[in-house]
Deep mutational scan, measured.
Amino acid sequence: ADFLSNDDYAVYVRENIQVGMMVRCCRAYEEVCEGDVGKVIKLDRDGLHDLNVQCDWQQKGGTYWVRYIHVELIGY
């Protein structure tokens, strides 16, 4: 899907992401590398560009918070 802005994409992720879902990092962020796959373990839905998504990352080996714009949804 094509999104006009980071805000549009962040809204899409916020409306669709669920705890337990698998996500792929589509934009490297601090300790999380692009392409790493993680399981969503906690969500904080306050802002669009806060650290909203806590995942247990496979490559990184452990949990880390990222923003909506850092992840793509790959289902369960």
Rank of each mutant, 00 (worst) to 15 (best):
A1P: 05
A1T: 13
F3V: 04
F3T: 12
F3K: 11
L4D: 04
L4Q: 08
L4G: 09
L4W: 14
L4M: 11
S5R: 11
S5I: 15
S5H: 15
S5E: 11
S5L: 10
N6T: 15
N6C: 07
N6W: 15
N6R: 14
N6H: 15
D7L: 05
D7G: 11
D7Q: 07
D8C: 10
D8S: 14
D8Y: 05
D8R: 09
D8W: 05
D8E: 14
Y9C: 02
Y9T: 09
Y9H: 14
Y9V: 04
A10M: 03
A10S: 07
A10W: 12
A10F: 03
V11Y: 14
V11H: 13
V11N: 14
V11W: 12
Y12T: 07
Y12R: 14
Y12A: 12
V13D: 05
V13I: 15
V13F: 11
V13C: 04
V13L: 08
R14L: 05
R14T: 02
R14A: 06
E15K: 09
E15R: 12
E15V: 01
E15S: 11
E15Q: 07
E15Y: 02
N16C: 03
N16P: 03
N16A: 09
N16S: 06
I17M: 08
I17R: 02
I17Y: 06
Q18G: 09
Q18R: 12
Q18H: 06
Q18P: 01
Q18I: 04
Q18S: 12
Q18K: 15
V19C: 13
V19A: 07
V19W: 02
G20P: 00
G20M: 04
G20C: 00
M21Q: 11
M21G: 05
M21R: 05
M21V: 04
M21S: 08
M21P: 03
M22W: 15
M22R: 11
V23L: 02
V23T: 01
V23E: 00
V23G: 01
R24M: 11
R24W: 02
R24N: 09
R24S: 10
R24D: 05
R24P: 02
C25R: 00
C26D: 00
C26Y: 05
C26N: 07
R27A: 08
R27Q: 15
R27F: 06
R27N: 14
R27S: 11
R27Y: 08
R27L: 08
R27K: 12
A28S: 10
Y29N: 10
Y29P: 02
Y29C: 14
Y29V: 05
Y29G: 06
Y29L: 06
Y29K: 03
Y29T: 15
E30T: 02
E30D: 06
E30W: 02
E30Q: 13
E31D: 12
E31C: 10
V32T: 00
V32R: 01
V32H: 03
C33G: 14
C33F: 06
C33V: 14
C33H: 05
C33W: 06
C33Y: 11
E34G: 03
E34K: 07
E34P: 05
E34D: 14
E34I: 09
G35S: 04
G35H: 07
D36P: 01
D36M: 03
D36K: 04
D36H: 05
V37D: 01
V37M: 12
V37C: 03
V37K: 06
G38N: 02
G38I: 02
G38K: 03
G38W: 01
G38L: 01
K39H: 13
K39T: 09
K39R: 13
K39C: 05
K39F: 08
K39A: 07
V40C: 03
V40F: 00
V40P: 04
V40T: 00
V40M: 02
I41S: 09
I41R: 08
I41H: 00
I41N: 01
I41D: 02
I41W: 02
K42A: 12
K42N: 15
K42L: 04
K42W: 05
K42I: 02
K42H: 06
K42P: 00
K42M: 12
K42D: 02
L43H: 05
L43W: 01
L43N: 03
L43E: 00
L43A: 03
L43T: 02
L43F: 08
D44M: 13
D44K: 14
D44Q: 14
D44A: 14
R45E: 10
R45L: 08
R45N: 08
R45K: 08
R45A: 06
D46C: 15
D46F: 11
D46H: 15
D46W: 10
D46A: 15
D46E: 10
D46V: 10
D46S: 12
G47W: 04
G47F: 05
G47L: 07
G47A: 09
L48G: 11
L48R: 09
L48D: 15
L48I: 09
H49R: 06
H49S: 09
D50F: 02
D50S: 13
D50L: 00
D50I: 05
D50E: 12
L51P: 06
L51R: 05
L51K: 05
L51M: 05
N52E: 10
N52P: 05
N52L: 06
N52K: 12
N52I: 05
V53A: 08
C55Y: 07
C55L: 01
C55P: 01
C55A: 11
D56V: 09
D56H: 05
D56P: 02
D56Y: 10
D56T: 10
W57Q: 00
W57C: 07
W57E: 01
Q58C: 05
Q58L: 06
Q58P: 05
Q58R: 10
Q59M: 04
Q59I: 09
Q59F: 04
Q59G: 15
Q59P: 04
Q59S: 11
K60T: 10
K60V: 06
K60Y: 10
G61Q: 08
G61M: 05
G61R: 09
G61W: 01
G62D: 10
G62C: 08
G62T: 05
G62P: 00
T63S: 13
T63W: 06
T63Y: 06
T63C: 12
T63G: 03
Y64D: 03
Y64V: 11
Y64K: 10
Y64C: 14
Y64P: 00
Y64E: 10
Y64F: 09
W65E: 01
W65H: 04
W65L: 01
W65G: 05
W65A: 11
W65M: 03
W65I: 01
V66S: 01
V66W: 02
V66I: 05
R67S: 14
R67E: 11
R67P: 11
R67T: 12
Y68W: 13
Y68K: 01
Y68A: 10
Y68Q: 02
Y68R: 03
I69N: 08
I69E: 14
I69A: 14
I69H: 14
I69L: 08
H70M: 03
H70N: 15
V71E: 03
V71F: 02
V71G: 00
V71C: 13
V71T: 05
V71L: 13
V71K: 02
E72N: 03
E72V: 01
E72L: 02
E72C: 09
E72R: 07
E72D: 09
L73C: 04
L73V: 07
L73P: 12
I74T: 13
I74M: 09
I74V: 12
G75N: 07
G75L: 04
G75K: 14
G75A: 08
G75R: 14
G75E: 11
G75H: 15
G75Q: 08
Y76N: 15
Y76G: 15
Y76Q: 15
Y76I: 13
Y76H: 07
Y76A: 10
Y76K: 12
Y76M: 10
